[in-house]
Write a protein that binds this DNA or RNA. Structure first.
Length: 563
RNA sequence: GCGCCUUUAGCUCAAUUGGAUAGAGCGUUGGUCUACGGAACCAAAGGCUAGGGAUUCGAGUUCCUUAAGGCGCACCA
């Protein structure tokens, strides 16, 4: 039941359209006031009446029914109370029939959305700074898919640049196959760090030459590069599996090597390309931005050149309705420039490109620095959180089966949830103290709530109880609050998608879990007063579990039925 | 210097996008329930929403301005 829509359709008011009423409907700050409210102030001018009078007249004209039970006018607000039994019937039936699909929709059917996220660099291990893009992108991927969109996850690999020449030079000097295979990506990264520390001019020249060899298709250089690449992908895929993140394409920067020339040609034809200090640029001064560099003075392409080619390729290949770039806000200007250049090229779809910018991660003693060894590796964070989860389980629930598996779900979930709980634009100062704290507003709290709910349901099932049909039950306050929260879930998912903000879903989880815990504390479920109430509460418990499990699932977090 | 972002309780953050008395968690203090899982629940204390102006019936939210912090400003990605 869409109450806002229902109210708008049933409220007769001359001179004001149902659409603008639906638009204006809000939720009062306090449940005692009502469940929905229409502030009448903005209609005062058009109707030439005081808001107070408008509200009173609308109240008098509204006929209550089995959906809206009560209407009142208070200081220019028109407040509506829904019929609680009706809400209960409606919500429980809907969750019961939609189950794993509850909260989703078909609004995106036939539409494609590309999401560029995580985008690992070859030969660089994952550190805590890579977590945001990975879990944000993964959550958006699932949220849009839940809304019926065809989603394309793109890992725009950082596999192009002079650093790979350096890496090969370093490997040739100091590395060998055996050590690299044993030490994996960290061993390779060490070589790169060492190069940056120790390389002299001769080695720098060598590095440039190796980069040229990669570009010109030299067999040995490319074999080495491909080997580094496969080591990197093997390594990151393990992390992606843990985080429940998947990709449909690994087309990285190198993929666009042969796709830039036509773009440059098109820029030239359209008269957008200008020479400046020997480089080829697109002048963006009229738009208040520095020029966008297309070709260096030595003729080499740049980051922006490849992003232009990539955007055009993606439009041609996927015909997206939206293409998201989940990249930190450091690159605000870069994306504004690239999007503007595409617009100037006459790509009307440039408006569908969205930079989903998020805040930066630093450590308590300042910015991360690989060279100074001030780095927090993501694997280590995951491992330590899983260990912590394991030890808590051992303490609280030592007889539990498959403790390792549950510790994995709980520990990894806490890492993901921590990265998604706040608005994405906020900077994050990482600390192990916070990461390892499972108290309060965390996924662990939500998972614990689910485990409680599962436990009740399992007991009821063991007794052979069923709770199919929901009768006319008047919910108490706790039940009603919980029902409203469950009913809100589809809107929450929509808002999260619209604002590219998975934190809405994470907040929703905690909020709903709190409401369940209040209900659980105050209302006996298995020992309810009568059979009808018992069935109703079981159905409510089941609906809560289903909803929370769908919500956590969107974030990539699992729900154990015991912990 | 210019541009963008951030600033809300001691700390970390919310606030349905302009609506009614600004809410959570952590921490502090005090309580609850013969436990359907205490990894729970309740309460108290804590606020001139960084400062100042403006718009509006109404501003944490919009605009201007000041301050503090972050990020970015041509051949890295």
């Amino acid at each position: 039941m869409d109450y806002k829509h229902y109210i708008a359709q049933h409220l007769v008011c001359e001179g004001i359209s149902p659409e603008s009423i639906e638009e204006a409907l809000t939720v009062p700050p306090d449940t005692n006031m009502g469940d929905y409210a229409l502030p009448c102030f903005k209609f005062a001018k058009a109707l030439r009446k005081s808001p107070v009078l408008i509200a009173e007249q609308l109240r008098d004209g509204y006929v209550t029914d089995g959906v809206i039970a009560e209407v009142s006018a208070v200081n220019g607000y028109l407040n509506f109370k829904v019929d609680r039994a009706g809400l209960a019937r409606d919500v429980l039936a809907r969750v019961r029939s939609e189950r794993e699909r509850y909260g989703g929709s078909h609004m995106g059917e036939g539409k494609t959305i590309c999401i560029d996220y995580s985008s690992v660099n070859i030969a660089k291990p994952f550190h805590i700074g890579h977590l945001s893009t990975t879990v944000l992108g993964g959550a958006l991927y699932r949220i849009f898919r839940f809304l019926g969109y065809h989603t394309v996850g793109i890992n725009h690999l950082g596999d192009y640049g002079t650093q790979f020449g350096k890496l090969i030079a370093a490997y040739k000097h100091w590395g060998n196959r055996e050590e690299a295979e044993k030490g994996g990506i960290h061993a390779i990264n060490d070589l790169y760090v060492r190069f940056n520390k120790e390389a002299d001019e001769a080695m720098q020249a060598e590095a440039r030459e190796y980069f040229r060899l990669i570009e010109s298709g030299d067999k040995e250089a490319n074999e080495l590069f491909e080997w580094f690449k496969s080591l990197t992908l093997d390594y990151v895929k393990k992390i992606y599996d843990k985080l429940h993140v998947t990709f449909d394409s690994y087309a990285g920067e190198r993929f666009y090597t042969d796709k830039m020339a036509p773009v440059i040609e098109e820029l030239r034809e359209k008269g957008l390309l200008k020479e400046s200090n020997g480089a080829q640029i697109v002048d963006l001064e009229p738009y208040g931005m520095p020029p966008c560099l297309i070709l260096r003075s030595d003729g080499a392409s740049l980051y922006a050149t490849r992003d232009l080619a990539a955007a055009i390729y993606r439009k041609k290949t996927y015909d997206f309705d939206k293409c998201l770039y989940v990249v930190a806000y450091q690159q605000n200007l870069h994306f504004r420039q690239v999007f503007k250049v595409l617009e100037l090229m006459g790509k009307e779809w440039a408006k569908d490109l969205v930079h989903v910018a998020y805040g930066m991660v630093s450590l308590e003693d300042g910015a991360m620095s690989t060279r100074e060894g001030k780095v927090v590796w993501l694997e280590e964070v995951l491992d330590r959180c899983v260990e912590k989860a394991y030890s808590v389980i051992n303490e609280k629930n030592p007889s539990l089966q498959n403790k390792e598996e549950i510790a994995q779900t709980v520990g990894v979930g806490a890492v993901i949830f921590g990265a998604l709980y706040n608005n994405k634009i906020k900077d994050i100062v990482f600390s192990y103290d916070k990461a390892l704290n499972f108290d309060g507003e965390t996924s662990v709290y939500v998972q614990y709530t689910c485990a409680r709910a599962s436990s009740v349901l399992n007991r009821a099932r063991a007794e052979g109880t069923t709770w199919d049909a929901v009768q006319d039950v008047q919910p108490c306050v706790q039940e009603f609050e919980l029902l409203k929260a469950i009913a809100e879930f589809p809107d929450t998912v929509l808002a999260a998608a619209k604002n590219y903000e998975p934190s809405y879903v994470a907040r929703y989880c905690v909020d709903t879990a709190q409401k369940f815990n209040k209900f659980y504390f105050d209302c006996k479920i298995l020992q309810a007063e009568d059979e009808e109430t018992r069935a109703f509460r079981l159905a409510l418990t089941e609906a809560t579990l289903m909803t929370l499990s769908n919500a956590l699932g969107l974030l990539g977090i699992g729900v154990p039925d015991q912990m």
